[in-house]
């Protein structure tokens, strides 16, 4: 069995700050991490490999630095890693990204047939949750998003059974391989890297593919050209037009403060009385 897991290197957005004057993102010194949602998919892939054997290939598209994310995946137990990197990809939106990744997976498949592709539920930077479905459509794979558990894999009949989160419940689905799965967050816990794998990751001869190696001939499908969406404006959220009424603690006891606040609030928003009474009913 051959599994491909798509992982993206993302800035640890919890640590990103915005320049107060220019309103631009200050990326300096912000560490890059593996998109956290991708780890649930990688772990699910590694568990399938533990149980059924086979190989796990991790694939990423991004700048040369993204190799760190792939090495991390190797240290967790992935067998092979490919970084698709080319200046021609700059400015790709999700449609262009899924095109490039699908081309690369097709190439991988020609080398060693692929049974399951995993993607993360979404990224924390792009945050669109579209690249997975996009790859599935382009490659005509069965699409299974928001999977909470894989309950059965029948390699002989090439069938897989799994639980998929729907809005009001869980769908138990059975489908045929090849398929593309995105795992729901919190459904497993990434294993620790073992010492041999950490050494292997450091020495692993990563494959770097440019657009030609990834089998991309139509450059109108990648980069800015292949991206229908355009960012027209980036801006900071605006404070409310009516500023908050600040009730300062310094001068008052908490008790008086609370009473003052309620008096003010119920005068300005008399309907709140009724709302609270209703919530209490």
């Amino acid at each position: 069995m051959h599994i491909v897991v798509c992982i993206k290197q993302v800035p640890d957005s919890a640590q990103i700050r915005v320049h107060p004057v220019t309103n631009t993102i200050m990326r300096q010194g912000v560490p890059a991490i593996v998109n956290p949602y991708d780890l649930f998919s990688l772990e699910a892939a590694l568990r399938l490999k533990d149980e059924y054997g086979g190989r796990v290939t991790v694939l990423s598209m991004g700048p040369p630095q993204a190799e760190a994310a792939l090495r991390k995946a190797i240290s967790f137990g992935a067998d092979d890693a490919i970084l698709v990197t080319d200046r021609a990809f700059a400015g790709s939106d999700t449609l262009a990204t899924s095109f490039a990744l699908a081309s690369a997976i097709q190439k991988i498949h020609e080398d060693m047939p692929v049974d399951i592709v995993f993607a993360g539920k979404q990224t924390i930077d792009g945050d669109t949750a579209q690249v997975g479905p996009g790859i599935a459509k382009r490659m005509d794979l069965q699409l299974l998003t928001y999977v909470s558990s894989i309950t059965d894999l029948d390699l002989e009949n090439r069938e897989i059974t799994l639980h998929r989160r729907a809005e009001g419940g869980v769908q138990v689905l059975k489908t045929r391989l090849p398929c593309l799965i995105t795992m729901l967050e919190g459904t497993n816990e990434m294993r620790f890297a073992t010492l041999p794998n950490i050494f292997r990751a450091a020495r692993y001869p990563l494959k770097l593919w440019d657009k030609d190696a990834a089998g991309i001939t139509d450059v109108s499908k990648i980069g800015l050209k292949g991206s229908p969406t355009i960012v027209s404006k980036v801006f900071a959220p605006q404070p409310k037009t009516i500023p908050a009424e600040i009730i300062d603690c310094e001068s008052k006891q908490p008790k008086d403060l609370a009473v003052t606040l309620l008096a003010k609030m119920f005068t300005r928003f008399p309907n709140l009385h009724e709302d609270i009474a209703k919530a209490n009913a």
């Binding site: 640590q15 915005v18 355009i230 960012v231 959220p237």
Partner: peptide
């Protein structure tokens, strides 16, 4: 013109799909 929060910092961005 579709506006959404963008990653990390306290920013929003407006996205258009032209052609």
């Amino acid at each position: 013109a579709a506006t959404r929060p963008t990653f990390g910092g306290s920013l929003l961005c407006t996205i258009v799909t032209l052609n």
